[in-house]
Lab assay of single mutants.
Amino acid sequence: GPGLTDLFKTEKAAVKKMAKAIMADPSKADDVYQKWADKGYTLTQLSDFLKSKTRGKYDRVYNGYMTYR
């Protein structure tokens, strides 16, 4: 089956995709945050998933999740 690194890459891609969806349409934020909360994502995990070469690119999404939880 898929190894943990593959799983991480898949999760990371999914999280980034959802983060971009929030940035494009902030009204989606609560739905996405709820999904992440259901998956039990911690802020540390989210921070790892949303690492970007562009500093602060996903800060709004991260901060939103922090206040959501």
Rank of each mutant, 00 (worst) to 15 (best):
D38K: 09
L50F: 04
L46F: 02
K28F: 07
V15S: 01
Y41T: 03
Y62I: 15
L46M: 10
K20P: 00
M23W: 03
K51E: 11
R60D: 15
R69D: 04
V15W: 02
K20S: 09
E11F: 04
P2N: 12
R60T: 14
D31K: 10
Y58V: 02
L46Q: 00
I22Q: 00
S47L: 07
G64A: 04
T42F: 02
D6H: 07
K53A: 09
A14V: 10
W36Y: 01
Y41V: 06
D25W: 04
K20W: 08
A13H: 08
G40H: 05
S47W: 12
L50I: 03
G3V: 13
I22H: 00
P26Y: 07
L46I: 11
K51W: 10
K39Y: 10
K17R: 13
A13C: 12
D25P: 00
R69W: 09
K35R: 09
V32P: 01
G56N: 09
L43T: 06
D59K: 09
Y62Q: 05
Y58P: 00
T5S: 10
A21V: 09
D30C: 15
G3L: 15
A29Y: 02
L4W: 10
K53I: 04
Y58H: 02
D31N: 06
G1W: 09
K39P: 01
G56W: 05
R55Q: 12
G40C: 06
D31C: 15
G1Q: 14
A21R: 07
R55N: 12
T44D: 14
Y68C: 03
A21C: 11
P2E: 12
V15L: 03
D6Y: 03
Y33S: 01
I22K: 01
K51M: 11
M66C: 12
A37K: 07
A37R: 08
D59W: 11
M66R: 10
K35T: 10
D25I: 03
K35W: 08
R55H: 11
M18Q: 14
K39C: 11
M18Y: 06
Q45S: 04
K20Y: 06
G40R: 04
M66W: 08
G3I: 14
G56K: 05
K57L: 09
Y41F: 06
T67E: 15
G64Q: 04
I22Y: 01
K9F: 07
L43W: 04
F49S: 02
Y62N: 03
Q34M: 09
L50Y: 00
D48K: 14
K17S: 08
L46P: 01
T5I: 10
Y33D: 00
S47R: 14
G40W: 02
L46S: 01
Y33L: 01
D25N: 13
R60N: 12
K9Y: 09
D6I: 07
N63E: 13
D30V: 11
K12N: 04
Y41E: 00
W36D: 00
D48S: 15
M18R: 03
K35L: 15
K35F: 13
T54D: 11
A14Q: 12
M66H: 10
T54K: 11
Y65F: 06
A21P: 01
K20N: 13
T44L: 12
K39I: 11
T5K: 15
E11Q: 08
T10W: 11
R55S: 11
A29H: 04
A37V: 14
G56L: 05
L7I: 11
Y41P: 00
A14M: 14
A37S: 10
R60I: 15
G64P: 00
L7F: 12
G1H: 11
K16T: 06
R69C: 15
T5N: 13
K20F: 06
Y41Q: 01
K57P: 04
K53M: 06
A29Q: 06
L7N: 15
D31A: 13
V61L: 04
S27M: 07
A29C: 06
W36N: 00
M66K: 13
L50S: 00
D48L: 13
I22W: 00
T5Y: 05
Y65W: 03
A29N: 02
R60H: 15
A37N: 08
D48N: 13
N63H: 12
T54G: 06
A13D: 07
T5W: 03
G3H: 12
G56A: 05
Y58D: 01
T54M: 07
K39D: 05
D30G: 10
T10R: 13
D48R: 15
D6F: 03
K28E: 05
M18H: 05
Y65I: 01
E11Y: 03
W36H: 00
Y65E: 01
D59N: 06
Q34Y: 04
A24L: 11
T44Y: 09
E11W: 04
A21F: 06
G40F: 03
A14T: 09
R55M: 11
K28N: 08
S27F: 05
E11K: 04
T54N: 11
K9A: 11
G64E: 07
D31Y: 12
L50P: 00
D6V: 06
S52Q: 05
F49I: 07
S27E: 08
R69E: 05
L50K: 01
W36K: 00
A19R: 01
T10S: 11
T67V: 13
L50T: 02
T67H: 14
L4I: 13
P26N: 05
K35E: 14
Y68P: 01
P26M: 06
G40T: 02
K39S: 11
K57W: 06
V15H: 01
A24D: 12
I22A: 07
T54V: 10
M23R: 03
Q45A: 07
D48E: 14
L7Y: 14
L50H: 00
K20C: 07
S47Y: 13
S27D: 08
T67R: 15
A21S: 09
K16V: 13
R55L: 14
A19N: 00
G1D: 13
M66A: 13
A24C: 13
A24R: 14
Y62F: 15
K35C: 14
Q45G: 03
K28L: 13
K28Q: 10
D59M: 07
F8N: 09
Y58G: 01
V61K: 00
M18T: 03
D6R: 06
K17I: 10
R55W: 12
M18A: 13
Y41A: 00
L46N: 00
T67Y: 14
T42L: 03
D48A: 15
T42Y: 02
G64F: 02
Y58C: 02
R60M: 14
S27C: 13
D38T: 09
K35D: 12
V32N: 03
K28C: 14
G3W: 04
L50W: 02
G56F: 06
Q34T: 06
K51N: 10
G40A: 04
K16A: 04
Y41R: 01
E11G: 03
K9E: 13
K51D: 08
R60W: 14
K57D: 05
N63F: 14
L43E: 05
A37W: 15
T44P: 10
T10V: 09
V32Q: 03
M66D: 09
K39F: 08
D48H: 13
S47G: 09
Y62R: 05
D25F: 05
E11D: 05
G40Y: 03
G40L: 03
T44K: 10
Y68T: 04
R69V: 15
W36R: 00
K17A: 13
G1Y: 10
S52A: 05
K39M: 14
K57N: 05
K28W: 05
D30A: 13
Y58T: 01
T67L: 14
D59H: 08
G3M: 11
